[in-house]
Design a protein around this nucleic acid. Structure first.
Length: 907
RNA sequence: GGGCGCGUAGCUCAGGGGUAGAGCACUCGGCUUACAACCGAGCGGUCGGCGGUUCGAAACCGUCCGCGCCCACCA
């Protein structure tokens, strides 16, 4: 007796419990007896639950994988093996994982697991991002509930509090990654603010500083009046807003000109009016001064090519302190910069508006102008784009201040070239356009933030304003004070591909795993993160790119393609699905929808479908185990056409799935697996195997069944790791040299198994079976009802499968005096069915006539083509041949159907 | 304002010069001992409109209509 191990099978009697399955017992493993006999259908005494229960499997398997170190990569192990590495896009410590993460992680896990099975030294580095503003905002909100601000705590205590909060939130995220099944190397977990990463930040900052690529300057930057910090260009989101365009008369009499503005309140800070140098209308005013309403100040009229004469009145008010364009104009003309708003967007200009918020001041200024008579020429509604803080949606205020910048031009050039040169591939390729758009036209990057949570800028100031940037292991001079700002959170994220591998040290990890193999992320952070990693990776690693391929996936959406958002109420929590349908089903649903470059719609129904698919795999394997399927020894040479067919199909599917995964086409890989597993293996092969098991071919069938499931489960493992591990270890026992599918060899196609003749034969068999079933269904013959039939094979090779066909169609042998009442010539075979005289002639005639019309139409179309001279002259031979086949097939159909009609009893 | 992409079955999406596809939904019939989280059989589309190229267009080109996303310093 051999024993087939099935872990976690239920205890209890063999009868089905009311829920349709048994509860798992506490028994870790119980034996399923496997018939050693090769005779017939000696059913094994198997007692498996009839439904897959992920909750009973996932946690146990994950802990086992981790404790056995299956996910731990070792840079020193067998240097001849190729290396494969991915660094995780570190989730923000704020909040929890959402469906977008689940998709991102499912893709990475699929890639890494496949490579691991292929024998690569595979490393997937986990970690989290400290997420500067976002995290600080969360903790500040928490404090606000206690009626406190961060200033009440002071910097040190506040940062300590954020660390504490990070500990709790981060732990939750790591738990969610375990639930998803992420095969990350937990021994290398990193955080963008831990000591190792802090050292990397200090090191690269110092290098950039010394290379003159970091500088401090007073410039106009994006400022969030709520977060009270500078923002980089990409942290500003533009949205169209309804506003008012106010036309105001400046100057008077001959001096008068009209300017239009959407921000009337900033006129208090105007220091000029600009017109285009070639604009005849205003030429006489250039160089003169005109009076600025409300203030009584006189401001010059300057000529600047930036002004578009055709827009509005062709005259622009210039507020260098509060508008980026005006700032530049001011610089060009040496205009003073007069700030009239403070850091919170409150008017500071002395006078009636002082103390008003910018949005209160705007109508107030207009009202005041109106009081003075005809100064306001016109007010009209005006839709224009307004910048908002990405983190809190507050309208951004351009502000002149002293900030730190990275000079990006040389870095961005290198980042663009790496893709242009083909050293880094972007997938799907259309996305490269967006990348270039950004990289080729990038402004200097403002990296200082007036926050407390983040890497503090490693620059110290001396008593006389001297500046020093010490390296990570150097001390600043005693008594000097450090810059109070912190770095943009993307600064440390940009180092991620090498900081996680030990940089700046030349670690074995860095040697072996850099450049990383692929970066997987959503197209939404191509600019934020990917381009910056490219810049810093190429810079820090002496021109070595951070990853060889960038693959971008879409956003997870609801079943109507709508973005998931809290306000819509259509957000799905991946943990909820994992709880109810399992991690595998959740992953499968996401990957099945992951068409390259496209967004990924998901819905409850689809998760259920994926859950059902996992259950299907479970039951197919359960059937196989009950019937003694195994993987011992070579495949038998003497197999039936049905066996040859499924083995042939298996080779094709292996090649297809492998190719799809290689090209990041997860949807197609899933599609191929789903179709093969369900439609071919379960619906046809398993059904035909039942016959073979019963008719003396049990030995070979058990081995083939074992083979098919073995390879299929391995192919599926990267996508649905849990159920495949559970089933595969049961199926294969421990005789495979590995007792986990995690490191089982990735299947490779075996061309020798290709059997086109068998595939064609089974296709015929399927057509025949389907046709008879159709007839039975149309005639209202109960599916379970046995029907006497006589089969005329006419030399068809299908004759070899008569038993199978009879079994599938529930046909009995004619008992003695057979008298056919219905005759179906299908394929080359004739089926005479004894329908007990209950045949619905009218229905069948209608049906056949419809089919006949369709076949005749086919003939018409094919003849049309074949009779068309131009077609015959120009169409490729293959197409012509196809049409000949089509014609022949249709003609055969017509003959068959006509025979069937003729055979129908007359009413 | 610039760039990219999309309109194919009721829904979500594949396909991409040579007979229109999948999943879900829907209709009909079945608890056929692996699985009712299942099985079997069906219904369903002039591939957004109009022109053009071609022997042949859902696919290629042009144009129009509708939609989405990204970038953007014309007040």
């Amino acid at each position: 007796m051999t024993r087939c191990q099935v872990t976690g099978v239920p205890t209890g009697a063999g009868k089905r419990s009311p829920g349709g399955f048994h509860r798992y017992g506490a028994v870790e493993s119980s034996a399923v007896t496997n018939p050693s006999s090769e005779r017939g259908q000696e059913a094994a005494d198997v007692d498996l639950p009839t439904q897959y229960q992920p909750a009973n499997v996932e946690g146990r398997l994950y802990e086992r994988w981790v404790s056995r170190g299956l996910f731990t990569a070792d840079p020193a192990r067998d240097p001849s093996r190729p290396a494969y590495s991915i660094v995780i896009p570190p989730p923000n410590v704020t909040g929890s994982l959402h469906m977008g993460h689940a998709l991102d992680h499912s893709i990475q896990d699929t890639l890494v697991r496949r490579r691991r099975m292929q024998g690569y030294e595979a490393l997937w580095v986990p970690g989290m991002d400290h997420a500067g503003i976002a995290t600080q905002n969360v903790v500040e909100r928490e404090l606000a509930k206690e009626g406190k601000s961060r200033h009440d705590l002071g910097r040190e205590a506040f940062v300590e509090r954020v660390w504490r909060w990070k500990g709790e939130s981060g732990g939750r995220i790591l738990g969610q990654m375990r639930r998803l099944g992420d095969s990350v190397d937990w021994t290398r977990e990193a955080f963008t603010m831990d000591d190792a990463r802090a050292r990397a930040v200090r090191t690269i900052f110092k290098r950039l500083f010394d290379d003159g690529l970091i500088h401090r300057a007073e410039r106009i930057i994006n400022w969030c009046p709520r977060c009270l910090t500078a923002l980089s260009d990409i942290e500003v989101e533009h949205a169209d807003r309804e506003g008012e365009l106010v036309s105001i008369r400046y100057g008077s009499g001959e001096d008068e000109l009209v300017v239009a503005t959407t921000r009337a309140e900033t006129m208090l800070g105007d220091t000029a009016v600009a017109v285009h140098p070639d604009d005849e209308r205003y030429r006489h005013l250039v160089g003169r001064e005109i009076e600025l309403p409300l203030t009584g100040r006189r401001i010059p009229v300057v000529a600047d090519a930036h002004v578009v004469p055709a827009f509005g009145t062709g005259a622009v008010k210039v507020t260098p302190a509060h508008d980026p364009n005006d700032f530049e104009i001011g610089r060009r003309h040496g205009l003073p910069s007069l700030a009239v708003l403070d850091e919170r967007g409150v008017i500071t200009a002395p006078g009636p508006f002082e103390g008003l918020d910018r949005f209160e001041a705007r109508p107030a200024v207009v009202a005041a102008l109106r009081e003075q008579g005809r100064i306001v020429k016109e007010v009209r509604p005006y839709e224009h784009s307004v910048g908002h803080c990405q983190r809190c949606s507050t309208v951004v205020e351009p502000r002149v201040s002293l900030q730190w910048f990275v000079t990006v031009a040389p870095l961005a050039k290198a980042a663009g070239d790496a893709v242009r040169d083909g050293r880094v591939a972007i997938h799907p390729p259309e996305m490269a356009a967006r990348y270039f758009e950004w990289v080729d036209d990038m402004h200097d990057w403002c990296i200082s933030r007036q926050l407390w949570w983040g890497h503090r800028i490693p620059v110290w100031y001396g008593p006389d304003g001297e500046t020093v940037c010490p390296g990570p292991d150097e001390e600043p001079p005693a008594g000097w004070t450090q810059d109070t700002d912190v770095l943009d959170t993307w600064f440390s994220s940009a180092l991620w591909p090498f900081s996680t591998l030990g940089w700046p040290d030349r670690t074995p990890e860095l040697e072996r795993f850099y450049p990383t193999s692929v970066l997987v992320t959503g197209y939404d952070i191509l600019f934020f993160w990917v381009a910056r990693m490219m810049m810093f990776g190429l810079y820090a690693m002496d021109g070595a790119e951070p990853f060889k391929t960038i693959t971008l996936h879409g956003m997870v959406r609801d079943q109507h393609g709508k973005k998931m958002s809290k306000s819509f109420g259509n957000v799905v929590d991946p943990l909820d699905w994992i709880d109810r349908y399992g991690a595998d089903a959740t992953r499968f649903t996401l990957l099945r929808g992951a068409n390259p470059g496209g967004d990924v719609p998901v819905a409850e129904d689809w998760a259920q479908g994926s859950r059902n698919f996992c259950n299907k795999l479970w039951n197919a394997t359960r059937f196989a185990l009950i019937n003694g399927a195994h993987v011992r020894g070579e495949l038998p040479e003497d197999v039936t056409a049905v066996d040859a067919w499924i083995l042939s199909r298996l080779q094709t599917v292996i090649a297809e799935v492998d190719g799809h995964l290689e090209s990041f086409d997860f949807a197609k890989a899933c599609e191929a697996l789903y179709h093969f597993a369900w439609d071919e293996v379960c619906d046809w092969y398993v059904e035909l195997a039942k016959v073979q098991l019963a008719d003396g071919r049990a030995g070979a069938t058990r081995r083939v069944l074992g083979e098919v499931l073995d390879k299929l489960l391995r192919l599926l493992h990267p996508v649905v790791p849990f159920v495949t591990e559970e089933l595969w270890t049961s199926l294969t026992g421990s005789g495979q040299g590995t007792d986990t599918i995690v490191t089982a060899p990735w299947p490779e196609p075996d061309r020798a198994r290709s059997a086109p003749a068998a595939e064609e034969l089974v296709a015929s068999l399927q057509r025949m079976v389907t046709e008879v079933r159709r007839f039975r269904a149309d005639q209202g013959l109960k599916p379970g009802q046995k029907v006497a039939a006589d089969l005329e094979w006419n030399g068809s090779p299908l004759a070899a499968h008569e038993d199978g066909i009879r079994s599938l169609l529930r046909l009995t042998e004619p008992a003695g005096g057979f008298s056919a009442t219905a005759s179906l010539p299908v394929e080359d075979v004739k089926v005479h069915l004894d329908t007990a005289g209950a045949i619905d002639v009218a229905a069948e005639r209608k049906r056949l006539e419809k089919d006949l019309a369709a076949a005749r139409k086919e003939i018409g179309q094919a003849r049309g083509k074949l009779g068309n001279e131009a077609f015959m002259a120009k169409a490729p031979e293959a197409v012509v041949a196809k049409n000949r086949d089509r014609l022949a097939q249709a003609e055969a159909d017509v003959r068959r159907i006509e025979a069937q009609l003729a055979a129908l009893p007359t009413a």
